[in-house]
Every structure is written in structure tokens, then in C-alpha cells.
Write a protein that binds this DNA or RNA. Structure first.
Lengths: 147, 147
DNA sequence: ATGTTAAGTGATATTTATTATCATTTAATA
DNA sequence: TATTAAATGATAATAAATATCACTTAACAT
């Protein structure tokens, strides 16, 4: 196939380096996560793969996500409603903007983030290691549908 | 008692306005949440009250938090590890700084927040309704203990 | 004060998401 | 091709939150 999935290759390499086998199921999961523009949920991934692998187990999806998280190759996005979605494309903490209507997730580029991190460290005297910035709202296309 | 709990009174008033009864259990829960410098969990609240009300049910804590959330008088803080903690003192979205060692939560005042909100709206074309900003790190006292 | 009633509570069952278990299968290496 | 540790599939177990239901009680009217 002519789909050179660079990010997927990186993940596969990382798995190999750490002595993990590359099974067809694992490959399918990685492939989806590496593209993951849509920040899929476990169920999303499961359903997507099940059309090709009817024998795929949900546990395998969970197991592989756990593994990929531990390797730092997938970022878990936990939402206030308790649902989790995953980003294997850019597995580093970064801001998200989520549409509460269509559930679309956008990754904004925020110049003010660096400044804010400095401000937090200065004000609280914490050593900041990690962060989670989510903005919830309604995207322009959902707004347009509200005639 | 000379503890004039202004915030607690506000919550009680809101409950009355909406036709809810003020039971001793409910009062105890509100009292803890209104002070809530420590951003307690459901279990925290349950354990605290159980010393005085040995008959208190965990379900009652959940029920009352649900009610207070629906009235906008309590803010639920959901964390990446799946745990939830509650803020009845300032039930409006605001940034938190969490120590991953001692679990302390600090509310920083961030001047750069307004600027960031503007930047997000401008860049993504979303109508921003809500946000969640959490910074994770190690507080100064925990740092000091690491001789 | 007392009785009435809808709301609240306690105890427990149910649900849902995730993790653990274990027999079987398979990828990787020799 | 054989060997073996790791992975999988099916299912059980766990944990957090919610639902159920009989019983109790706060609030209101009398």
C-alpha cells in the first residue's frame, strides 16, 4: 500500500526496540492511533477493527493502549463525562478544543501557553511537570447548522 | 456556633429556592463542600461525616453532589487517573495546580488566562463555553522534603 | 401541635468501564 | 521447523457511579 504512515512506523519501531511482538491486531490498533485525527475512543478502535478482524477482543484494545501509554506513544484524553479518547499522533500534552455538539477535537497552536506556564510556576512555586488544557465549546460548522 | 459559613448559606438558600429539603445529612455535606479548601473526594466527605452520622449512606453523598452539580453550586474536578474531587467553594471553572505527591490543589491567579481564551476563539473559530486548565507538578514543601 | 405528603435516605442491586485471569495461539529466534 | 515467551480471546473480577425501593422525615397546612 502506498500509505507511508511515518508516525505508525515510529511506534512500531519503539515496540520492537522494547521487545514486543508485532501481531496483526497490534498493527491494526497502532495504525488507527497513529493517524487518529479523530482522537478515537476504545470502542471506536474496537468497532473499526472488528470489521476486518471479527475475532478481535476488546481486551486486546485495552491492553495495547495500556502498553502504548507506558511507552509514551499514546496520550490519554480523559473527559469530564468520564469518557476517554486517545491521541497517538501527538502523544505529548497539548491544548485541545472540543465541540460539545459533534465531539470534534481540534489542536490549537497557542502562543500564550509558554507565558502561562511561567506564570503558574512563578505564582505557585510548584515545579510544573505536566498540564492539561481543554476548552469546550461549539465549532463553527455546528454553529452554522443552528439557523 | 460562631462559624458563619457564608458560602454554605448561599448553597442552602439555593437549595431552598429550588424546593429541596434541608436534611441533616445534606447540611453536613454542604458544610464540607462549602469550605473545601482541600477539594475533597466523595470518600473524603463520606468518611468525615460518618464519624458523626454512622448511619450515613455513601449513596447520599453521591446523590447530593449530583444535585449540587446540577444547581451549579459544586464543580467536579475529574483527574487523569479517573478520580474525582469537588469544589463547592468556587464552583466556576478555574485553573488548578495539583501536587502529584501530596495531592494538594492550589488555585492560581493567572492574568494570561483571558488572553489565552481570546487566542483560542480566534484561532479555532469556536464559541468557547467552558474550559479546564490543570497543571501537575510538585509543590515546594514536597520538593523540600527531597533532601 | 399534629397530620399529610412528596422528597430524601439507607441498603443494596445494577450498570458501565477497565483490569485480571487463564487456557490457547502465535511471532520471533535459533 | 521447533522452541518459547509473549499475545490473544473469552470471560471473570473489580471499582466507581447510578438506580431501585421500602422506609423515614422535613416542610407545610391545618
Amino acid at each position: 500500500m502506498a500509505d507511508h504512515n511515518k508516525r505508525g512506523d515510529t511506534i512500531i519501531r519503539k515496540l520492537r526496540e522494547n521487545g514486543h511482538k508485532i501481531t496483526p491486531q497490534r498493527l491494526a490498533i497502532v495504525k488507527i492511533l497513529a493517524v487518529s485525527d479523530g482522537h478515537p475512543s476504545v470502542e471506536d478502535i474496537y468497532e473499526q477493527i472488528r470489521t476486518d478482524f471479527p475475532t478481535m477482543s476488546l481486551a486486546t484494545v485495552y491492553r495495547n493502549i495500556l502498553l502504548l501509554k507506558s511507552l509514551g506513544e499514546v496520550l490519554e484524553l480523559g473527559f469530564p463525562d468520564g469518557s476517554n479518547r486517545y491521541d497517538g499522533n501527538k502523544p505529548v500534552p497539548h491544548p485541545h478544543v472540543i465541540c460539545i455538539r459533534c465531539k470534534k477535537i481540534v489542536d490549537p497552536v497557542l502562543d500564550s501557553l509558554d507565558e502561562m506556564k511561567k506564570e503558574v510556576a512563578l505564582e505557585t512555586d510548584f515545579k510544573i511537570l505536566n498540564h492539561r488544557l481543554d476548552f469546550f465549546g461549539i465549532c463553527s460548522s455546528c454553529m452554522a447548522e443552528n439557523k
